[in-house]
Nucleic acid binder design. Structure first.
Lengths: 233, 233, 233, 233
DNA sequence: GATGAATGAGCGTTCATTCAT
DNA sequence: TATGAATGAACGCTCATTCAT
């Protein structure tokens, strides 16, 4: 996202200290953020519905009730829209997972709850965001792929840390050199594909809650198995 | 794929009975198949390297050492290229998995071996095909998505059947109404994301074998867990 | 200019040997050249009339009775159109000047005749080409400037050689280290500005012949003066 | 240039009589002029470096440390910027030439000195201004072309008058009906192209002084020749 | 069957200009 | 006066697809 010709990160949109700027500057700041969000929101729903390539910049501007130029004032190009979008979605998802995890004392139970939160909170409330991160942003040029990798890396790290914190309480650690990372990647893989499968292919939102329970049970089993292997050796 | 103006399925390319056609008809048939494969192969490596949208039909024709018109003679449009491609890849993958499974008497061991085969045979030997099914064909319009769904459905069914055959020998079945399908989807999700992560993001082909072992161990653990839940109830 | 995706020089358009290609290949070749010329001709008159920046590619395609895509098939972009145009014009001008010069035995008289030819043949018959080289191609990005420099360098070299050949007959040479080049550059500067002034600003085509005579007289005087300085030392 | 919504000529910027305005009005007047000059100066260096079309209004405002709106307050549009710029440059050049000419008693020697001044003072000290008048303002729409014509007309007139005044002392005049104007145009053509050639193409600033001497020698020779023709007839 | 030149709708992007604050 | 966010028409260019030869 560009502000005054310079690109700033999505997180920078939140003003640092509000006492260092005048009343009008603050209002302008607020309006800028509002318009950014409006554009991203318009783009998000269009990308999710019609696909990234099928959505023209004019359509986005129309939906956001702005001119094309305005969109380009806030984002340097179409790809930038997608990059910012998945960055925001990544942050949201991490927050949802972290909240659920912490709420249960960073335990194995918290880990389970985070899994439930993915399906119950994230997927059910934001199916469009699911479409963006898991469908529309796939295979879209280096910039987007780079950001995707970044997001997934962060998620992996989060999961990994959570797993360690939770497992420490159980007094176990991981056997294989790769086990921890593989678990982490596998878990996200399960979340991704299960969400994709039931949201986009079966369009079965009703049972997603139960499906999520099963998926999480599967995951916990897998983890235990690797723990078990460790314990036996 | 079109032959004589009519679209035929990839599997139809193989002639039914060779005694019903003349010597020259057979030669023509052989040449047709050869050109088809040449085109798909050219497109596959270009899609994998440069991306589906970054690859023009002219580039494909160039690489296949044909004219653009020739490509359109064999495939009705660019999307059709992708559809046929992922169909072939789907078939190949199913064959690889089935072979490994059957070789060990359709048992839980066979199930494990099929997992190993995914990483050792499929991913390592055909990284470009991995790029096509798991990256380039994602989010590309209804026709492709339809075919993707079809492929994944078949794979899910294969895995499901295998799982049942293998588990029958162990004398267990699945508790939850969704458990079986969720396992199936989860397994493929793990395969997909683990392959993607280590092939495209970490570019760690060397340790893929060990990674595959871990992933499969994780999967078996997950399965056992759901079995266990079942047994307990 | 591009043929078969590869850029070829304008001079390459002329087929090297006509016995190495089939009847139909020759016809295609002829048609290609014809379309190239049609496009350049359309673009030339539009650039000359409306200006390079005021002329869109669609207008050019319209005037050439082709689609925009066709124009882009023959020329890689708008700038390429201008580059090829001024290259052709440069060649034409050199031919006109050389013909006039040689016709009079490469003497001082031939030199004078070349000057007359610039005004009588080039300016009067091709005022649009004058507009292109001396007006529309000025200040238009590095590629065009590069080609302009190339053309003027060639013209300078031609004039220089002509001057030497003619002056050898008179038994003189140039005094200052820079004199020869300065003369050369000055002569072209005179031709350029005089043509520009009377063609575009005074729109006085009628008296251009007499004007040319005066300009050439001025040039010859300048040359003699530098010669004279030489002789005196 | 606009002041209070009305466009005034660059020369009008200089206040007529300072006793007719208050202290604060004078300060405002001074600031206005300062900002005008700042903008023109910023635009000049950007046009010269990046080209007229490659330079956006925002860049100019940035360089002048103002807002885009401020630029539009002082100049009615981008073209107006260029028009004022070349007008100022034209005035400067005329002043430089006139000063040199007068300093030597409006003689043939003064004429020569004016030529030297063009290269030594104008070209060497203001290469950016050379780029503007001789490169960036060429072929840029009717308003600019009109002003260019106006400037060159004035210069031609100056040269013409100077030539007459100088030649009267030598007791000669011009033969052909067009001779005087042709000489005038030719001289400026030589100055223009020689400056362009060595400043932008050969980037040879070091020898520009000597080059100027040669160019002027060439010019004087040309003049003498036309004089001579006159004398003989 | 094979060719490759031709099509043209559609796209992403720019940028001079305006105007509410 | 000064600001800078907003406008939107216009542009250059791409590329999947067609079709005469």
């Amino acid at each position: 996202m560009k502000i005054n010709g310079k690109r700033i990160m999505a997180s920078n949109r939140i003003k640092k200290n509000n006492d260092s700027m005048s009343r009008s500057a603050m209002r302008r700041q607020r309006e800028r953020e509002y318009r950014c969000r409006t554009i991203l929101s318009a783009a998000e729903s269009l990308f999710a519905r019609d696909g990234y390539h099928q959505t023209g910049m004019e359509k986005i501007a129309d939906k956001a009730e702005m001119s094309v130029g305005a969109v380009y004032f806030y984002f340097k190009n179409k790809e930038d829209l997608l990059v910012n979008m998945i960055e925001d979605i990544g942050d949201l998802l991490r927050r949802i997972l972290a909240d659920a995890f912490e709420r249960y004392g960073a335990s194995m139970e918290g880990f389970k709850q985070a899994g439930y939160a993915f399906f119950d909170d994230f997927c059910i409330n934001y199916p469009e965001k699911v479409a963006i991160v898991f469908r529309e942003s796939v295979g879209q040029g280096p910039e987007v792929e780079e950001k995707r990798k970044e997001i997934f890396d962060k998620l992996n790290r989060d999961v990994s840390i959570a797993l360690h914190r939770a497992s420490e309480k159980e007094g176990v650690d991981f056997s294989s050199r790769y086990a921890a990372e593989v678990i982490t990647v596998s878990i996200l893989g399960i979340y991704e594909r299960v969400a994709y499968h039931y949201l986009f292919w079966k369009r079965d939102t009703e049972n997603l809650k139960q499906i999520g329970r099963d998926a999480v049970a599967f995951i916990l089993g897998g983890i235990n198995n690797l723990f078990g292997e460790n314990r036996c050796s």
